[in-house]
């Protein structure tokens, strides 16, 4: 189906699609106001589960993928209660500690072949599979977005206490989101393992996390389409600019992340950002109109 693409282009397309799954995973947690730094830990669980199933047993790829998704989801569910107890930067730190503990366990365990990682994983992933997986994810996201659960999630993110007052079970919403994010990241990790043939503990580190965060935060935390479209847009852009893989890429992503946090805290898909810009464009050349809440001088003088 994608034979007309050059191998390099196809490789980059697959990379972008798997990265999109990770972006979706992080977006799901951000939607409910969870500051989780754990996605790479779940991706590691998924990647290693799938790799071990297909290299040590005769089971087909689908079983490994399913096992990876379920195991990552289960670990998410297991650690959700302690992590969700934490608030703010403590949640960020707790989830990061969880992810690092997972990666270190993989690195020191003989069962996972330690720091050398696993090689010779059969290549099973075709672009079609990735598109199907993403289409399913998008469908679920859109249904979730429009459902009672989606509105509850938004309420939880905007104001936890008010949401609780409205009868929303805040913990349950967050628990579902954290578990689902774990399962999605695990699935992404499994697909990545079956695409690149080789995995090692070091690939689940900060660099990928920053890239994913850049996509999610620059894309915006409103609708899922924001981060997804940004992921694809930036992938195409960086191919055109030929910066892929170099040192510059990391610097560009880091700077982009910081600049967008400063300029557009809600991401580029935030509607109020464009409202403000439009107002400024409309008022160009004119002196700024007086603010409404300031009483006019004539009224103030007796």
């Amino acid at each position: 189906m994608f034979d007309w693409l050059e191998p390099l282009q196809l490789f980059r397309l697959d990379t972008a699609l798997i990265l999109t799954l990770l972006v979706v995973s992080v977006h799901v947690t951000f939607r409910v106001g969870i500051m989780s730094l754990a996605p790479m830990g779940f991706a590691a669980v998924g990647g290693y589960t799938a790799a071990l199933v297909s290299t040590k047993t005769e089971l087909p790829f689908a079983v490994g993928l399913l096992a990876a998704t379920l195991l990552a989801g289960a670990i998410g569910a297991l650690f959700a209660p302690p992590v969700l107890r934490l608030r703010g930067i403590y949640m960020a730190l707790g989830s990061l500690a969880l992810a690092q503990a997972i990666v270190v366990l993989i690195r020191i365990s003989d069962f996972t072949n330690g720091p050398n990682g696993i090689a010779g994983i059969p290549v099973e992933v075709k672009t079609e599979y990735l598109i199907i997986a993403l289409a399913v994810a998008f469908l679920v996201l859109e249904l979730g977005h429009r459902s009672h659960f989606g509105r509850a999630a938004k309420a939880v993110r905007l104001d936890e206490r008010t949401a609780e007052g409205l009868g929303i079970n805040v913990f349950r919403v967050r628990f579902v989101a954290f578990t689902a994010a774990g399962a999605i990241a695990g699935c992404a990790g499994a697909l990545e393992a079956h695409r690149t043939m080789v995995i090692s503990p070091d690939q689940y580190g900060f660099a990928t996390l920053v890239i994913v965060f850049t996509y999610v935060l620059v894309g915006g935390n409103g609708h899922w389409a924001g981060p997804v479209l940004l992921t694809w847009g930036l992938t195409i852009l960086r191919d055109l600019l030929q910066v892929a893989g170099g040192h510059w890429e990391d610097i560009v992503y880091g700077v982009l992340l910081v600049v967008v946090l400063l300029v557009a805290p809600n991401g580029l898909s935030d509607r109020s950002l464009y409202r403000g810009l439009r107002r400024r464009w409309r008022d160009r050349g004119n002196p700024p109109s007086p603010k409404i809440d300031e009483p006019a001088e004539k009224v103030a003088s007796p």
Binding site: M35, L37, G88, I89, V210, T214, I251, G254, L261
Partner: peptide, 16 residues
């Protein structure tokens, strides 16, 4: 900005 912005911003700076 919310607390998390500081975390993410410093992660970005650390990468640079």
């Amino acid at each position: 900005a919310p607390e998390f912005s500081f975390v993410v911003a410093t992660i970005g700076v650390s990468l640079v």
